[in-house]
């Protein structure tokens, strides 16, 4: 593995009209590493990864992939460079069968443009099986799967299509303890396979065990960027809370005033 990170943002910024969602943020992700992006609701985590994924273009700063500067105009371009993203809303089409969702946008075809349906069905089943999900019927609409299962389908899809970088937007947010554990295990699995993983979460307890680097965002700004040996779990949790501290204080004062 070379020293240039696979994905690198320098001073990236993005605004939606007059809302500045992201300002001067650095990030890098290298093969075999998990980079965690932490922050409260509205901190700009999704905005950050939408830039990485090619869904939005950054307004300021630079974005380089394997040392080359890029400005994607569609997610397809990012995908072609091996950057696959699993979105918070998962980017699945609920009414379509699991296997059609698995291959959506990268369909396997035979001669005359005919879909290779047996291959796609079997592959979907096998890939999910390899991740420990035993789907009885890959013809089910994906909307009928549980949140964790859908998450795993989305991750399995990205891994199968040869992603070099895997971007996960809050994959554990809607999950129970057990299912979150399953997803965290896949993240480690992906790292072992040599993928560069960018893992977005607002839960430091999910981030710390799997992460190698931590970027903490607050209201669109970076308030800390550390490697694992620089920071302990408690410090990380503390940093996360820092942004909310003032608010907390205000609440307490208010409560105190009401009592009097």
């Amino acid at each position: 593995m070379s020293d240039t990170p696979l994905v690198r943002l320098d001073g990236a910024g993005k605004s939606y009209g007059n809302v500045i969602a992201l300002r001067d943020v650095d990030l890098e992700a290298s093969p075999g590493e998990v980079t965690c992006v932490l922050g409260d609701n509205g901190a700009g985590k999704s905005t950050l990864i939408k830039i990485v994924a090619g869904l939005h273009r950054h307004d300021t700063g630079t974005y380089t992939v394997q040392g080359e500067e890029v400005a994607f105009s569609s997610p397809r371009e990012a995908l072609d460079l091996g950057i696959a993203t699993v979105y918070q809303d998962l980017a699945v089409v609920p009414l379509m069968p699991v296997w059609r969702n698995f291959f959506l946008g990268s369909e396997k075809r035979r001669r005359l443009g005919r879909l290779d349906i047996p291959f796609m069905r079997a592959t979907t089943r096998d890939e999910l099986h390899a991740m420990g999900i035993d789907l009885r019927d890959v013809d089910r609409p994906i909307g009928t799967l549980s949140g964790g299962e859908r998450q795993c389908v989305a991750i399995a899809r990205a891994v199968y299509f040869g992603a070099k970088a895997l971007v996960l937007d809050e994959p554990t947010a809607a999950l129970g303890v057990k299912q979150a554990g399953v997803v965290l295990r896949y993240i480690v699995q992906a790292r072992e396979r040599g993928l560069a993983v960018i893992f977005i979460t607002h839960n430091p307890h999910h981030a710390y065990p799997v992460g190698d680097r931590f970027l903490i965002l607050d209201r669109g700004r970076s308030i800390g960027y550390h490697t694992k040996d620089e920071i302990s779990r408690d410090e990380l949790t503390g940093l996360m809370a820092g942004g909310a501290e003032l608010e907390q204080l205000a609440h307490e004062l208010e409560r105190g005033l009401r009592k009097e």
Partner: peptide
């Protein structure tokens, strides 16, 4: 789901 479709290319 047009947005999802766009996101996967």
């Amino acid at each position: 789901a047009a947005d999802s479709a766009r996101a996967v290319g």
